[in-house]
Design a protein around this nucleic acid. Structure first.
Lengths: 211, 211
DNA sequence: CCTTCAATCATACGTTTGTTTGAATCGAAC
DNA sequence: GTTCGATTCAAACAAACGTATGATTGAAGG
């Protein structure tokens, strides 16, 4: 059952437009026009605009989830207690690597992710499945072993920081005006900076502890 | 010219609704209904929905900007080269402290900020003035002195990380499902965690350096 | 009492929105 | 050559949208 071309062209068009203008800022007509399809195609293939969004998100998130899981598997096969830096690399790396080709440094996809995470609308959080929870729990457990003495709450705070930094920073890097004289960041440079930044942040001593 | 009550009630209502549903997800009618005002009141007092948004943002951002500037002044009056932790505190602290009362730990206002930062729409970036650039440049310079050896690009990356962590983390803390068994973060605990997290992250050795 | 002016009001306009409908089209199976 | 299921199509739908208009209010000033 090879998916008919119209289906993936709708997904491609929607992914571009949702990233560029947000969910509410993108009309079904704009999507079908860009895809060269009929207006009713969205209803036929996906049921509604919201379900089209869910399909778009799933297509973007699935390879990231898979790479995060595989990376953690690889790490745990080598040693039961990986270092913080290795864990950060396994978690944040796919957020840079698993981006569709043609997406300038992942900026467009990152913007899509931020649009999703930041949008308060209900439709935006309907896509999460058990896969996300599993990955989160696995990494939380591994980080917990690597960072003893950290309360579960503060650990959770720090792990959330990883997503915040990787996603938001890339978006801002491309859309917000940088100080004059700064060239736009190269994709792989940002990747290294993020790992450095986050490994140090995760490794900070627990907040309560005295120097 | 004490502002007539309708004006501030529109600002209050719009601030709530923009944070909860985003700019495009909030209708002018919803704002005027919540404010107990007439539909035409937005056009009369602000000109358009977009200008109302700008007014809302300015009202939220101005005390934050002022506190950041004042904090940096206080720091520089004491020593010409403040520590990284002090700078982080001066920059990130107001993002926690300068939140309107009644806003649960600043979650609503943070969500508004993220909604603004993440929204690709043009209207969302029309409000920035010279004040934001000035603060950014002042802190960049101070961080640059405290962190010699860091390239301007990586420094800029790290400073942007401050905003990403403080804003996004708080939003996620309240809207995303936490792992079971974790109680919601207390406001001032998150503040300390963020400072710890960010001070360590900012202080990381430059990415290029060995061991 | 009359004017003045800022504020509020009900109402309407023209678009654009997401979704639905029923007919048309197409290739493959029989 | 006909039937059939899967697509695509033009068209229409009601609802919601931002904005503009002109009348109405109500207190202040002369």
């Amino acid at each position: 059952m090879p998916p008919p071309s119209t289906r993936v062209q709708l997904l491609d068009a929607a992914e571009h437009l949702f990233a560029e203008r947000g969910f509410r800022g993108t009309s079904v007509r704009a999507i079908t026009d860009r895809a060269g399809a009929n207006l009713a195609a969205v209803g036929y293939h996906f049921g509604s605009k919201a379900e089209l969004l869910a399909a778009v998100i799933r297509r973007v998130v699935e390879p990231i989830n898979a790479a995060q899981n595989a990376g953690l598997d690889r790490l745990l096969a080598r040693t039961p207690d990986p270092s913080v830096t290795d864990l950060v690399e396994a978690f944040a790396g796919p957020l840079f690597d698993e981006m569709p080709v043609g997406d300038e440094g992942g900026a467009r996809t990152s913007r899509l992710i931020v649009t999703i995470l930041g949008d308060p609308a209900e439709e935006m959080r309907a896509w999460t499945g058990p896969a996300e929870d599993t990955i989160r729990d696995r990494f939380l457990a591994a980080f917990g072993r690597a960072l003893p003495g950290l309360s579960p709450e503060e650990l959770w705070f720090r792990v959330r920081g990883i997503l915040a930094v990787t996603a938001v920073d890339r978006v801002q890097a491309y859309q917000q005006d940088a100080p004059s004289g700064l060239s736009p960041v190269a994709g792989d440079a940002a990747r290294q900076w993020a790992i450095t930044f986050l490994a140090a942040a995760l490794s900070a001593p627990p907040t309560g502890s005295r120097s």
